[in-house]
Amino acid sequence: MSKKLPLSLACGDYEILRALKEGTVQPDGIELTVLTAMDSSTRHWRFLRNREFDVAELSASSYLVARDHELPVCALPVFPHRRFRHGFVFINTGKGIREPRDLVGRRIGVKSFSVTAGLWMRGILEHEYGVPHRQVEWVAELDEDVSFTPPEGLRLSRLPHDRSVEAMLAEGELDAVIHSDLIKPFVAGDPRVARLWPDYRAEEVRYYRKTGIFPIMHVLGLKREIVEQHPWVPINLQRAFEQAKTIGMQRMENPRLVPLAWYREEWEEQAAILGPDPWEYGLGARNRHALDTLAGYSHEQGLSRRRLPLEELFLPVDEGRKRGEFRI
């Protein structure tokens, strides 16, 4: 009986990863222990600080900082999580904020400065709406996945353990919050808190049609030692993630799986706007554009000391022309 390489994989519990979690898809030569119970920020911190997992879904922004600091991690061009960010900018309704330019000179809370959601939205606010990140006072709640030294001119402070940016926004101690999730006061219907863009979906569609970017949130990180000791692992993992995504996307075409009255209509509208595979892996033209943009924001905002090229960031997974195609 052949022996497989045991690897731990920490990731989110996503439909496009279901086949890996349930064992329907198994990477050739690899036995995965799949861990899905952690929240994202915990998973990222534990992987980057302690290297507790062999493979982990990882914050794209934190990965850029980690590579800039030459930590022993690398990544595959697998992007398990993407999300438009306009719907996650929240304002205090008593501060007279009506449009993005009203954020200039304000005090804005973030979960941590290096969170990918914040990096994307700060870059979008600066380049699409004229809100320079250095003309805002930033207040972070958590420590960073990878520590960095804020550059001169960046106004950044960190809250004590017993304070939260969500509560401070509701109380008026912050003017706005950029978050990776829906914040508690908003979910609870607190009238003191609202979205910056009430029709955020229309704004996100407009942004996509202008830029072609569906923001990449997470990449697939690996310990460098795994790649050095077993150079065949990256391609086999890439193939397995591609297979799992193909199965997941085909399964989700069935409207009977989801208790939403107009699910199929939403699925078709997504395809009409974003194309047939919005969750595309690899370094094709659309993904390169998104990742180059994110790397530029990271350098511009002082998280990475140089602009990192994609060839340094992602392991090669090419199997040769017309080779390695997965079919079901």
Rank of each mutant, 00 (worst) to 15 (best):
P160Y: 10
P160H: 12
H161Y: 15
D162W: 11
D162E: 14
R163T: 07
R163E: 15
R163L: 13
S164W: 01
S164M: 08
S164I: 06
V165Q: 07
V165K: 01
E166R: 01
M168E: 13
L169C: 09
L169N: 03
L169S: 08
A170Y: 02
E171R: 11
E171I: 01
E171G: 12
G172E: 07
E173K: 11
D175Y: 01
D175W: 00
V177I: 10
I178L: 14
I178M: 09
H179W: 08
H179G: 12
H179M: 07
H179S: 15
S180M: 12
D181C: 05
D181Y: 10
D181K: 06
D181F: 09
L182A: 15
K184G: 11
P185A: 04
P185Y: 03
F186K: 00
F186W: 12
V187R: 10
V187K: 11
A188V: 03
G189T: 05
G189D: 10
D190L: 03
D190E: 12
P191Q: 10
P191D: 13
P191K: 10
P191S: 14
R192W: 03
R192G: 06
R192I: 04
R192M: 06
V193G: 00
V193R: 00
A194Q: 03
A194R: 06
L196A: 03
L196H: 02
L196I: 04
P198N: 10
Y200F: 14
Y200N: 08
Y200Q: 06
Y200C: 04
R201N: 12
R201T: 11
A202M: 02
E203M: 06
E203N: 03
E203D: 08
E203C: 02
E203F: 01
E204R: 00
E204K: 03
E204L: 04
V205Q: 09
V205G: 02
R206N: 13
R206F: 07
R206L: 10
R206K: 14
Y207W: 12
Y207F: 15
Y208Q: 05
R209V: 00
R209S: 08
R209F: 04
R209P: 00
R209L: 11
K210N: 13
T211L: 04
